[in-house]
């Protein structure tokens, strides 16, 4: 391969390299910087750099998914259905990772793995709704019918995701940061040194999730040649 083509090819993948570099920085700095030790959290506050980005990835993927479902319903282009379902699958994967890391964290700070905490319960419901979306898709064999019904269900799921994971936990008492009675992720509530790692973590993990999403879409493009001509 001539060198100028190789350079062009590398230039197209710069954001993947950025994701890798940022995440290596996050892993090393996330464990070694000094953090404030508060209450029962101890050193487990470092989970902020790995647990919260999972949810950012999930929101990014579900937003991509619902936007593509809306475009599908206005244009009936089956490509959009493939984009929407791939994003929902990757988003559910990151949601499960976020839920698992949160449950492990809760075991040692809240005193229970599955507690009756509103944030945890509502999030479990939201992820289950998206799992229902994936199961619903498997249950319909007609490709056009599947695309339409699942697009409508996807909009319903997103309309429930926001109140379930973002609004209700902020209105009631919860042990989770960001509820009615606990400080959340606001500019004054997070130590400056932690922000130096937290923001790169958001960017790095989101880029990684987008990378995984593009891989899924490219695989589907090869598999479903009759849709992608």
């Amino acid at each position: 391969m001539p060198p100028n083509i190789a350079v062009k090819k590398m230039a197209r993948h710069w954001w993947k390299a950025l994701a890798i570099l940022l995440l290596i920085y996050v892993i090393i700095a996330g464990f070694t910087i000094n953090i404030p030790i508060i209450g029962t959290n101890g050193q487990s506050s470092r989970g902020l750099f790995f647990h919260v980005p999972m949810w950012i990835c999930m929101y990014t993927m579900f937003t991509i998914s619902v936007v593509n479902s809306l475009i599908f319903l206005s244009k009936y282009d089956l490509k959009r259905d493939v984009y929407a379902s791939s994003a929902a699958g990757v988003g559910t994967f990151f949601g499960v990772l976020g839920f698992a890391t949160g449950s492990l964290w809760a075991t040692y700070t809240w005193g229970g793995t599955l507690t009756s905490d509103p944030k945890q319960m509502c999030t479990a419901i939201a992820i289950l709704i998206y799992m229902a979306y994936l199961v619903l898709r498997l249950s319909i064999h007609d490709i056009d019918k599947r695309a339409r019904i699942s697009a409508v269900f996807n909009i319903f799921a997103f309309a429930l995701l926001i109140p379930l994971t973002y609004i209700i936990p902020r209105m009631v008492d919860s042990l989770h940061p960001g509820s009615a009675t606990t400080p959340g992720f606001a500019s004054n509530d997070t130590e400056g040194t932690m922000k130096m790692v937290l923001y790169p973590a958001f960017i790095g993990w989101t880029l990684l999730s987008v990378w995984i999403y593009t891989l899924v879409v490219r695989y589907k493009k090869l598999e479903l040649k009759n849709i992608f001509r």
Partner: peptide, 30 residues
Amino acid sequence: IYVIVGVLVIIFLGIVLFLINLDRKISKLE
């Protein structure tokens, strides 16, 4: 603590190598 930092870096690099390999395989198919 640096031992575990190393462990995580190794695991992460393993996953990244897997993703890069998958990316290249899909590119080849394309």
